[in-house]
């Protein structure tokens, strides 16, 4: 299937059904959470202080929940009413706005300590009508100039997005620079198809060299560390034993884990654990 942003505009694509699906999917929740933590890390806010943040394309508040958890006060904007409805149901703490980011923000200058956005700005790259204000460069310009105005000096905006080509990255960064932002693109896990994530890390002010573009994460150094993100599948890579044969996935640990899971879910007739659990049968029968 093609990318969601090519199928319909966001406010239509994320209708009631898709909004619920999106919010309840545990895999999406996990990815969103990982990316929000990473975005917060890139924002580099002073620790132990609650900041006033803007969540661009907040959706159902998946990333907002993490901002709450970290003690920040936030404002979320999204263009899909169904997503906002789900956010209301989930009783998130932030203020929500129904707003098209391509039309620009109306926030007073210097309002926010930072902005994050997870998986949003690729939606600005499609023209919905032939009106001049709906062309991607115009919408991007509007978005970046008003965002730049709404942020404090110095501060940062970290926007994760899914580009389809390098041309798109080029277009977005050049418009962001024209709007007055410094900074650039940070790519995490550049050599992995699945775990690769592109963050646009933008700086407002900061006086020349004080703000450095952070480095993207690399797969090798991070495997096994707490900080490894998007890498769950890699870590699960089948470990081969000495003889080069694949180890059975359904080993004793796996069985015990499954049984524990069933018990927690209240399933009846889960066999009890014993020394025979998951033991290999003798080859002679």
């Amino acid at each position: 299937m093609s990318r969601p942003e090519l199928q319909a505009p966001p406010e239509i694509y994320y209708g009631d059904i898709e909004a619920k699906k999106y919010t309840n999917n545990s895999r999406i929740q996990q990815i969103q959470a990982d990316m929000t933590y990473r975005a917060l890390e890139l924002l580099n806010l002073p620790s132990d202080q609650s900041a006033f943040l803007l969540d661009v394309g907040c959706g159902s508040g998946l990333s907002g929940e993490i901002l709450d958890e970290q003690g920040h006060v936030w404002v979320g904007v999204d263009v899909a009413p169904s997503m906002l409805e789900v956010a209301l149901d989930r009783e998130v703490e932030g203020d929500l706005f129904l707003q098209d980011i391509g039309q620009g923000f109306g926030f007073r200058p210097g309002s926010f300590d930072g902005a994050i956005s997870v998986s949003v700005i690729q939606w600005l790259l499609n023209a919905e009508t032939s009106h001049p204000t709906s062309s991607p460069p115009h919408r991007l310009t509007r978005f970046f100039t008003t965002l730049h105005a709404a942020l404090r000096n110095p501060s940062r905006a970290v926007l994760q997005f899914y580009p389809t080509s390098d041309d798109q990255i080029q277009l977005i960064t050049s418009i962001a620079q024209k709007a007055g932002f410094g900074g650039g693109v940070v790519v995490d896990y550049p050599n992995s198809n699945k775990a690769r994530k592109v963050f646009l890390c933008l700086f407002v002010g900061g006086g020349g060299s004080t703000q450095q573009i952070p480095k993207g994460l690399e797969a090798e150094e991070d495997v096994g560390q707490v900080h490894a993100r998007f890498e769950a599948s890699r870590q699960r890579q089948r470990k081969r034993d000495k003889n080069g044969k694949r180890k059975s996935i359904k080993d004793k640990d796996w069985i015990l884990r499954k049984k524990e899971l069933y018990r927690r879910r209240g399933k009846e007739d889960v066999p009890r654990d014993s020394k025979y659990t998951g033991r290999k049968r003798k080859t002679v029968f």
Partner: peptide
């Protein structure tokens, strides 16, 4: 409505 302000603009109002 429902605590969410509608900030959408019509085409001719977009700056």
């Amino acid at each position: 409505s429902n605590g969410i302000p509608n900030m959408l603009l019509a085409e001719h109002e977009i700056g």
